[in-house]
């Protein structure tokens, strides 16, 4: 669709804009009173009630029964983050490189790292301030280990405006992993599956 007709804001018969035919508003008190009486006793309310009644009796309802029922969302949808584990060993994928922290444009990721007893970098704390997160997906895109990904949980209702997700909330629980419930993120930043991918995919 071309946008040119919309850019022309001079209302005329040639443009896409036109005046809606609206009745004049009543101005005097008597006219206003007449309008109220007319609207009250015309029975328009019952038209609507009848439609509801008719559909109820037909038992053919298309409404999604949220929150009992949820629509599937697109694979590229960027909802609340998840931290994944390696399929093979069950270790955390996150190596603590800090790239997500660096790239985050709303500066809402923070992590604490230390050296663990195996001389590896251990991520002791990881948090995303969802009050500030704009769900841009940069963190998932930059992650070299495909460790932080976006999940499908979009309900962010909370008592606090700035609630956090911390590491325990995001990390795949071990029983989830063993029962095969950890989902790879198929959205932006993920790799195209091919033969070279064995079990745990890597970005390179």
């Amino acid at each position: 669709m071309h946008s040119e007709p919309l850019n022309d804001r001079n209302v005329s018969e040639h443009s896409a804009y036109y005046y809606v035919d609206i009745e004049e508003y009543p101005t005097t008190g008597w006219d206003k009173f007449k309008q109220v009486v007319k609207r009250t006793f015309r029975g328009e309310l019952f038209v609507g009630l009848w439609v509801v009644m008719r559909e109820m009796i037909k038992f053919d309802i298309h409404t999604v029964k949220y929150p009992l029922e949820k629509l599937p969302i697109g694979p590229r949808y960027r909802a609340v983050h998840k931290l994944l584990r390696l399929w093979e060993s069950g270790y955390e994928r996150c190596i603590g490189c800090g790239l997500c922290e660096k790239i985050c444009i709303s500066d809402c990721i923070r992590m604490d790292t230390k050296i663990d007893e195996n001389s590896r970098k251990e991520v002791t704390e990881y948090s995303i301030n969802l009050g500030r997160c704009i769900f841009c997906g940069y963190c998932a895109e930059v992650c070299p280990e495909l460790a932080i990904v976006h999940g499908q949980r979009y309900e962010n209702g909370s008592e606090q405006r700035a609630h956090f997700v911390i590491k325990d909330d995001m990390l795949t629980p071990l029983d989830f992993l063993t029962s095969g419930q950890q989902a790879e993120y198929p959205g932006f930043g993920a790799i195209t599956p091919n033969e070279s991918v064995t079990k745990t995919p890597l970005a390179y």
């Binding site: 490189c97 800090g98 922290e101 660096k102 790292t113 230390k114 050296i115 970098k121 251990e122």
Partner: peptide, 9 residues
């Protein structure tokens, strides 16, 4: 200092 922080931070 080892593994406690990234230099750029």
């Amino acid at each position: 200092y080892q593994y406690s922080s990234n230099a750029w931070e």
